[in-house]
C-alpha cells in the first residue's frame, strides 16, 4: 500500500503543476493581489474537498485499501500553532513555494528550490532538536 503512494504523488505533482502551484510568479502575484490564481485554486479545492468529506462521512465509507472505517480527525490546537503559522507564511512568501510545490518544482527543472528544500529539512530538524531538549518524545508521524 505504501508504495502505491508514489502513484498518488505523481498524480498530485501533475495537478500542482497544472494548477500553477509550481510557478514562482503566482506566489508573488497572490501576495501583491495582482493575480489570485492560487487563491482560487485553494478556495475551490476546499469547497470540493469539503463536500466530498461530508459525503464520505455520511456514507460511512471505508478505505478501499484496508477496509478500515475512514477517520475525520483534524489537527489539534497547540501553543506553537500561532507562531508556527506566522513563520510558515514568511517562508512561503519569501521562497515562492511551499513544502509540496517546492519538491514538484524540481521536476520542472527549477533548481533554485534545492536551497529551499535543504532549508525545510534543517527547519524540521530544528523543531525535533527543540523537542529533544525539552524532553518531549512525540513522533513526527506514524508509519503504516
Amino acid at each position: 500500500m505504501k508504495y502505491s503512494f508514489i502513484l498518488f504523488g505523481i498524480l498530485f505533482g501533475f495537478i500542482l503543476s497544472r494548477a500553477g502551484a509550481t510557478t514562482f510568479d503566482n506566489y508573488i502575484n497572490l501576495f501583491l493581489f495582482r493575480d489570485l490564481q492560487l487563491l482560487w485554486v485553494i478556495a475551490s479545492a476546499v469547497l470540493v474537498a469539503g463536500f466530498g468529506v461530508q459525503l464520505l462521512r455520511l456514507a460511512r465509507a471505508r478505505a478501499l485499501f484496508s477496509g478500515e472505517a475512514l477517520t475525520f480527525v483534524g489537527k489539534p490546537m497547540t501553543r506553537d500553532l500561532w507562531l508556527g503559522a506566522i513563520l510558515f507564511g514568511v517562508g512561503w512568501g519569501m521562497t515562492g513555494s511551499c513544502p509540496g510545490s517546492a519538491v514538484a518544482m524540481l521536476g520542472e527543472g527549477k533548481m533554485a528550490v534545492l536551497a529551499t528544500i535543504a532549508g525545510i529539512f534543517v527547519g524540521t530538524y530544528l523543531f525535533a532538536w527543540r523537542d529533544y531538549r525539552r524532553g518531549k518524545s512525540t513522533p513526527c508521524n506514524r508509519s503504516f
Partner: peptide, 15 residues
C-alpha cells in the same frame, strides 16, 4: 532561499 526554507520547515512543524 535556504533561510526561507528553514523558517518554513520550522513553522510547518510548529503549526
Amino acid at each position: 532561499l535556504f533561510i526561507g526554507g528553514v523558517v518554513m520547515g520550522l513553522g510547518a512543524r510548529m503549526a
